[in-house]
């Protein structure tokens, strides 16, 4: 069942079209990624979903509610973590949760949330004394304090160090396991690949693909790439005549082979038969980065 439906969403600011005909549906219980470079239209989409912006055209529904017309009902059931929003410096973790809990009809249990997000030991610490990762975990907790069925997390791990980022990912998986549907807005490939069940790739205001991470990768059939340094010189024809090999060439003593899915087995078998040892053997497969380049026509590089 779809908990969020966006259909034909348009939004422009003056002459700039921020979002152009964006459509997608988020199913209950999934982690749905909205992936795109900075300025691709992700935040505008989220702001329309949150009711902060009025769409120029198109339909937006969250849990069956219209963000413009059912604002207050929606705010009770949709938890939102906004990009770069901070709370008062001297507010303590528990006080912040206590304060936000008072805004909702059926707030979550504060102790449970503190446990879920590993903030128990920090509950009496002021916001300004938290690390970046802890601040982000608190902001997830604040997004969940109203017991929402859907949580939107916008650029959650931007500015975090790799360790804190991985910790945050673990928290997001825990939150999903507790039954909350998650919309994850990100410009990190690795984050989308690791966490999302499905991803909408947004580029220049439009959705260019919606699929699972594996599905997106499979769309870019660049095959497999293999490289190694042979123990002795040999005739490249030995490889090129294999049906699995599309291309083989030598570059400064290194053999580079591209081909189809069974490439590795075919090449290693023929090398073994000819008593050639492959040193520094490397296999590269297409990843989400390649898929992104293929789908949008430019490199990701945030």
């Amino acid at each position: 069942m779809a908990v969020i439906e966006i259909d034909g969403l348009h939004k422009r600011y003056g002459d700039t079209i921020a979002v152009r005909d964006v459509s997608f549906a988020v199913d209950e219980g999934e982690i749905f990624g909205i992936l795109g470079r900075n300025g691709a239209g992700k935040t505008t989409t989220v702001e329309c979903l949150a009711g902060l912006r009025r769409p120029d055209a198109g339909m937006v529904r969250a849990l069956g509610l219209d963000p413009q017309q059912d604002r207050s009902a929606l705010r009770q059931v949709l938890g939102i973590q906004l990009q770069a929003s901070k709370i008062a410096e001297r507010l303590r973790v528990r006080e912040a949760l206590d304060l936000f809990a008072s805004f909702y009809d059926k707030p979550a249990d504060i102790d449970e949330l503190l446990r879920l997000l590993d903030l128990e030991e920090k509950q009496h610490t002021q916001f300004r004394r938290l690390s970046g990762g802890q601040q982000q975990r608190l902001s997830i907790a604040l997004a969940l304090i109203g017991n929402p069925r859907v949580a939107v997390l916008d650029e959650l791990t931007t500015g975090l160090d790799p360790r804190a980022r991985r910790d945050t990912w673990e928290m997001i998986e825990r939150v999903r396991a507790s039954g909350v549907t998650i919309v994850l807005v990100t410009h990190f490939m690795a984050e989308a690949q690791r966490l999302c069940d499905r991803i909408a790739v947004i580029d220049a205001g439009s959705v260019v693909a919606i699929d699972s991470p594996a599905g997106l990768v499979a769309r870019v059939d660049t095959g497999q790439h293999l490289s190694f340094r042979p123990s002795t010189r040999f005739d490249l024809a030995m490889l090129t005549e294999l049906p699995e090999v599309h291309d083989a060439r030598e570059d400064d003593g290194q053999i580079l082979v591209t081909g189809g899915t069974e490439l590795v087995q075919a090449v290693t078998a023929v090398l073994a038969r000819n008593h050639i040892v492959a040193h520094e053997l490397r296999v590269d497969q297409a990843d989400l980065d390649d898929a992104f380049v293929e789908l949008t026509g430019h490199r990701f590089d945030s």
Partner: peptide, 16 residues
């Protein structure tokens, strides 16, 4: 300060 830090924006997506 609250506007600058995004607290006003944060509240506008809460029920309050």
């Amino acid at each position: 300060g609250y506007r600058d830090k995004g607290m006003l924006r944060r509240l506008s997506v809460s029920p309050v």
